[in-house]
Nucleic acid binder design. Structure first.
Lengths: 360, 360
DNA sequence: CGATTCGATCGAATCGATTCGATATTGTCG
DNA sequence: CGACAATATCGAATCGATTCGATCGAATCG
């Protein structure tokens, strides 16, 4: 029977249990870990002693120290948690990742790395024991957290910045992927094609960008998609960068592109994310434009937006599957298997938001 | 200069650094922790040695073991992560919690406890070192994780199940809160008032429920709100339970209540969550009913649903603030301060979804 | 100038387990 | 009946730090 502990008593340890059961701590340890042979009688006595003392199992900390394994994987999201959780695609990735990690018996340590102070996360992680770390989102280039964890010899897995050495990547050919939607609208006959880009920098504002902005781009996926777009339509095609990955920011960017006389207005907008694309659709509607009659809009990610009354033409990138792929890389790395970058395939889905350009 | 480590070399430890710097490990420790007096020259030598060996700081595990503090707080969400992340209210709570914990220098260990296998989370947490645990959501009654962590003597903080002893609570008077919307529609003159309840059990299905279902309710907030509703309108008022906390489930529940001849149809539906209420509004519209002309709908939580073209009449429960309150309780518990339950205030917001009942 | 204090450093104990190699006991086989 | 194997248990080393009390030299004070 478990006794209520007296105030002042310290929590019982394995040694206390062993003592009460009349065995050595090594034997008691064997009982809890299940390794090594222990006679049934002894095992019962140890368990009874544990029950009596209210011993809830070996201290995870001590156990981890000895075994050199924590069971925890850091998941670094490069945004305030609020924003990361608002993006359905990020959620899908996290979900798939959680599924795979859980199956491997690992827990997720969530670490936010806000753009305005990316170094703080280093301090937070420096005191944190983890077996591996995942950067499931786009990935900041030259991330200081990557440097720190790398120095600690912790396996690193990411979905972005394939530049970072020492990080195993689930790679997407961003430039090629945006080419799917871009070619689609070009194939429909559009000639005035514009684009809305995701933030290229941590402190991005909603504004027009030019090729010069590409050089200092710190978010490689946004940069890659932008490059892919310009490669196909020429570097003079107007592009507006959205400050954040939200419907509101997409709407603001859409207004910037669409609020002008019909003759100058783009007839198609290739957007780098579904959430932003939904904002562009909304901006068009607010300006009295028909989608796709007056303007075609494409997205990226292929997330489910049940509240949008249209189906976006978009690049489908199975988020949960991407998360699982990341999880499998982590497992492989932790099992000491050699890990190689994985190429992740995306595909075009034609929805209701694209059509040939309006007759001039 | 940091040297690339040779294969076969083990990671450098504090002792290696101390040896190279020609000091004792205790002194080296003092340099990294900043406690105790160390002469500037010695400190520099130690830091230089660390740099040379590529020592990234004291092992968090060993450090934690000695100090008896991990810096991690478990956040147990009683759902698959996917569902928890879809609910804007849950996100707001997590966001506020994350803010407060981050300020306290603690990281969040995310643990999912799916309804179909609540015991598995115990196994996962048993090997995990944490300083405290938070149950930010509604809270399952008699949660086995609560029992396990309680036995380990870990401070527990929750937002639901005020029944569990040993857990400090941020309490909401659920019955009183649902009374705000219920009284509101009664005051408008409605007499045929129905309700949509959140799941009362882990394995709930979308179906009508009666007072008998209240007895076995495992989710105390859903039960409390339901009780509060019946207390005001009488136990014969029809109630449908939604299987999940999603717009779709709300729509299904709404159909069950509203798809009948006008004479029997409720003229007001008091819903236990905004997400469900949005589904009810959608069900009404799908049935050709005007909201609030034909039927009034109220929600609960006060979340932002930008894609809904109405403003819900609802009980505003500031999620982020609730999360911060939870975070403050955790901090207090970890600082060894006495923690008392906190009462959390909610208020009525009248939106566009309620009006007097249609003339007979 | 001797006593005292302060600052810097060190040695050893400790946190709570796991695990390897050794030992004792029992059972089996030739 | 003696040798050997298998099983159960134990003792001691170890994981990598932190921290307390002790020590030693230099500076301060009366």
């Amino acid at each position: 029977m478990s006794q209520p502990r007296q105030a002042g008593d310290r929590r019982p340890t394995l040694r206390d249990v062993a003592e009460l059961a009349g065995v050595s701590t090594s034997t008691a340890s064997l009982v809890f870990s299940g390794k090594g042979p222990v006679s049934p009688g002894t095992a019962d006595r140890v368990r009874a002693a544990a029950e009596e003392l209210g011993f809830a199992g070996p201290d995870p900390l001590a156990s981890s120290l000895r075994q050199g394994r924590v069971g925890t994987v850091a998941v670094v999201v490069e945004a305030p948690l609020r924003d990361a959780f608002r993006d359905p695609f990020a959620l899908a990735v996290l979900d798939g990742l959680a599924e795979e990690l859980e199956a491997a018996g690992r827990s997720m340590l969530l670490v936010a790395q806000p753009a305005d102070d990316p170094v703080r996360a280093v301090g937070q992680l420096a005191t944190q024991a983890v077996d591996a770390a995942v950067f499931p989102l786009c990935g900041l280039r030259d991330n200081p957290v990557v440097a720190h964890l790398g120095a600690r010899g912790i396996p690193l897995v990411g979905a972005g910045s394939p530049g970072d050495p020492g990080v195993a990547h689930v790679r997407v050919d961003e430039a090629g992927a945006i080419g799917l939607t871009t070619r689609h609208v070009l194939g429909l006959g559009h000639t005035r094609v514009a684009s809305v880009a995701m933030a290229l920098h941590p402190a991005a504002t909603t504004r027009a960008v030019t090729a010069a902005d590409l050089d200092g781009a710190l978010y490689p996926d946004a940069g890659g998609r932008l490059r892919g777009f310009w490669d196909l339509v020429g570097p003079d095609a107007p592009v507006v960068q959205a400050a954040a990955l939200t419907v509101g920011a997409g709407e603001a960017a859409g207004r910037l592109l669409l609020d002008r006389p019909a003759a100058e207005r783009p007839t198609a907008v290739v957007v780098q994310a579904d959430l932003l694309a939904a904002g562009v659709v909304r901006a068009a509607q607010a300006l009295g434009l028909d989608v796709p009659g007056d303007v075609s809009v494409t997205g990226f990610d292929g997330v489910d937006l049940p509240w949008l009354d249209q189906t976006l033409t978009t690049v489908v990138q199975p988020g949960a599957e991407k998360g699982r792929a990341l999880g499998r890389l982590v497992r492989a790395a932790l099992d000491g298997e050699p890990v190689a970058d994985v190429d992740f395939e995306v595909s075009l889905r034609v929805g209701t938001t694209t059509a040939p350009p309006p007759a001039a």
